[in-house]
Amino acid sequence: MQVPVVSAKGRFNRLVVWTISFWIVVAAVCIYLQHRITPRHTLVLRGMEDVIPQSVGDWAAVAYEAAPIINPEQQQGLLEDYDEILSRTYVNRRTHTEVMLSIAYGSDQSHARQIHKPEVCYPAQGFVIDSVQRVQFDLASRQIPVTTLHATRGRRSEYIGYWIVEGSSIVRGAIEQNMKRMLLALRGIRVDGLLFRVSTLSDDSMTSTVLLEQFSQALLQSVSPSVRSKLVGEPAVASDL
């Protein structure tokens, strides 16, 4: 009786054997690098409601919401990605202009849980974004890279300014965010992140941008240096990456 015997030697191509050994090594390297990653939390603001003052300069927080503040979290029913969110409306005592503030903290900045940019969460809630600009705000005695947006939904016209702090410095744009996360991960570090967003209901781009800058200045001046460095990060240094 004959049972077909398969000789393992001749049949398998050398290339196949090499390929498999090579990939076993690659997989091992990968597993090692992944297990080495440890979270580093530098931005935790425990009890944001108390840390961020109710009154900043000429601005005072109000209990009512002039307009519902857009939730930075909501992205068509995806995961809850933030550990803490602060949403407040501030009104200027003299000019009565209103600014909406939203600060979101996420302890885990892996890709799946990283901070959603307002470019994503506004359209997800029915807004149309018709302008995205990269500007600089004069804050904390340095230039802060800020992204400004104009979003409309029905008759609601909203000007938004925001930045994202990751680890210890500000990152702007998805590519920068991904690059930083990836380079840190290869070094075995996973950082936390914070979204600082201010917005105002208005039809005028110029005055809104100035207003958002002034409010941010007032807010950063009224918090302690340690909180300030968490809200705007440290000036980026090359060695940070």
Partner: peptide, 28 residues
């Protein structure tokens, strides 16, 4: 396997390995 095919295979697999490691570790 001829030398050209082997070289092609090596280049491709090396590229794949870099993408695989960076993608997995960097979470992309």
């Amino acid at each position: 396997v001829t030398a050209t095919r082997l070289a092609f295979s090596l280049v491709m697999q090396f590229m794949a390995a870099i993408l695989y490691i960076v993608g997995n570790v960097g979470d992309i």
